[in-house]
Structure formats: C-alpha cells, structure tokens
Amino acid sequence: MKTTAVNPRSSRGISNYALYSEAQSADDPEFIHIEDIRSRARLFDWTINIHVHPRMYQLIYVRTGHVRIHIDGEEFTEQAPCIITIPPSVVHGFEFGRENTDGSVITVSQLVLLDEQFQRDFPFGDELLRKAQVLSLRQHPDDTHFIEQIITQMEEEYRDNRTGKKQMFEWLLYSLLLKVGRRVHASHRPRDEDHYERLYRQLVQRVEHHYREHKPATFYAEQLHTTTTSLNRACASVSGKNVSELLHDRLTLEAQRMLIYSSVPVSLIAYDLGFADPAYFSRFFKRRTGVSPSNFRELRDRG
C-alpha cells in the first residue's frame, strides 16, 4: 500500500494527501496504514513538505534521531523518542535527521475515531482530536517501552495474514491510542470540566464544522440546546471572548493558513471562506490582524 497525492493542489492551495490508493483485501485492517519513517523519508530527501490530510489522523513515533516539525506556521525541533499526533486538516511537515532517524508513521481514517462506539468508550477522544501534540518520551521510559512493543506488534500484524488480523490490529491500535491519550492528559494536567468548559468544547466542535457558513450564534445555541446567553458566558469563562469573536477568530486562522501555505488569489480565499464580497473579506481580515491579506502574505514571504 502506498501514499498517493490525490488532487495534489487543492482549491485552497495546500497539498492534500490520502492513503489507500490500492484495493484492500477483506482481511486488511480497514482504514489504517503503517510504515517506517526511514523508507518514506528517504524518497523525499528526508523532508516531508507542508501538506494536510483532510480526513486522516496520524501518529508519528520517532524512535531514534531527531525531527524538525512544522505545524500550522510554528516550527520546533524534538529529539527521539517522541510521539507527534496530527489530527485531520492540521497543516504540517517534517524534516527528519538523516544520520540515525527511524520510527513509524501510523495513519488512521477519521471515520475510525468518529465511530459512535469509539466516541462513547474512548476517554481521550477530544484531547487527541482537538489539536496536534508533540510529546517527548525521554523522561518516560515505561511509556516508551510500551509504545515500542505495541508498534512492533502492529507492524508484524500489518505484514502478516494470520487469522484474526483485523481484530488484533484494531485492539493494538486502541491500546496505543489509550497510552498516547494518557500521556497527553498527564502533560496537560487538566482539572475536571465545569458546565461552561463542557459547553465551550462542544461549541468549538460545532464551529469547526460550520464556520465557513457564517452561521449566527443562535444557530449554535439551537444545535447545543441552550441559549446564546449561556454560550457567551461559556466563551467568556474559558477564553475571555464572546461567540462572535470565536467565530471570527476561526475564520481568521483559516485565512492566515491559506495565505501562508498557498498562492491562491485573495479573492478565491474570500469565496472559499464563505464571503460573498472579496473587498469585505479584506476589510474583515485587516480589522482582525492589522494588515490586509496581501500585505500579510508579503510579510510572511519576506520573513
């Protein structure tokens, strides 16, 4: 099975990639792919350029060496051993050290993670899907040993065709996600959510699906069976903003991503983000950032 560019330059101008270009047999684990970093990275001179997987979740386990990570405009370097989690639609890229870098890349269709039973039973779904994570394992040898064993078993199951392959592979994947979820949870040390924090989290999830539609606060209130007053209080409690500011922040973030990672004309970005008038989009963007879209792109190109 190989990774293939599908519509490699999307309408938004960021490279989109999908897996599963070859037909799967009935015994293959559905919607899951695993490969070693070295085999993939060597094909691209150890640099995986900026791209996005719209419907796929990735776990990158760096066993040895180091990696320079690019996630949504931020860049930093991490030494092995470490785990990197990339939720669907997060812009990312990697520059792996040539000398001794090795590890594994596990790619899972978001359909697996959005499955109703998985969502009901898995305790760390929101934490793993909310944003990308870079987790150092250098101070956690027990976790590293567990992850190493699980991934080794996953690779063996993936290569072989023993009876129960699909079920065993899914069990191993679930165990791996649980271990990574625990590490994410421990690194954040969150306290129990109160009512407003829960409502805010649910709102953010809805916004992610509808922000291009420019829905009003009343739409989200109806979706969450609450009032706009409660939504505004939840936003103020967690982020210090109101619902409108949250919606505008999400549109602005997506506009910045597209301006940074693509050469798509500003007018097309405006239409893609649901603005009927590119001039209005430019005024909106300038109010939020202090510069016009064109100037923002020029400043990033110079930097």
Rank of each mutant, 00 (worst) to 15 (best):
L173Q: 12
Q58L: 10
V207R: 00
Q79V: 01
I60P: 00
E222V: 07
A236F: 10
H209F: 07
G240D: 06
H225K: 13
R233F: 08
G164R: 09
D160P: 01
E157I: 04
F146I: 04
S136D: 07
V291P: 08
E127P: 04
L247K: 01
A221M: 04
S89V: 02
R201T: 04
L268Y: 13
S263A: 11
E74T: 12
N161F: 14
H214M: 05
S282D: 14
Y61N: 03
E157T: 10
Q139T: 14
V90I: 13
R63C: 00
V204N: 07
F296E: 01
V291D: 01
R198L: 14
H53A: 06
E245Y: 06
E22S: 12
L43G: 06
V105R: 07
R63T: 06
G164M: 01
A255K: 03
Y280C: 08
E254L: 06
S263L: 08
I84P: 12
E197M: 08
A255G: 10
N232R: 10
I84L: 15
H248A: 08
R120Y: 11
G181Q: 06
Y200H: 13
Y261K: 06
L113I: 03
Q256A: 07
L176E: 00
Q117K: 09
T289M: 02
E22M: 05
V91A: 15
M258G: 00
L247H: 03
V207E: 04
E298L: 14
L176S: 01
S282K: 11
S10D: 14
M56K: 06
E75L: 07
N100E: 13
A217I: 00
P216C: 03
S39H: 09
Y158R: 01
Y20T: 09
F122K: 00
H92F: 15
S11G: 11
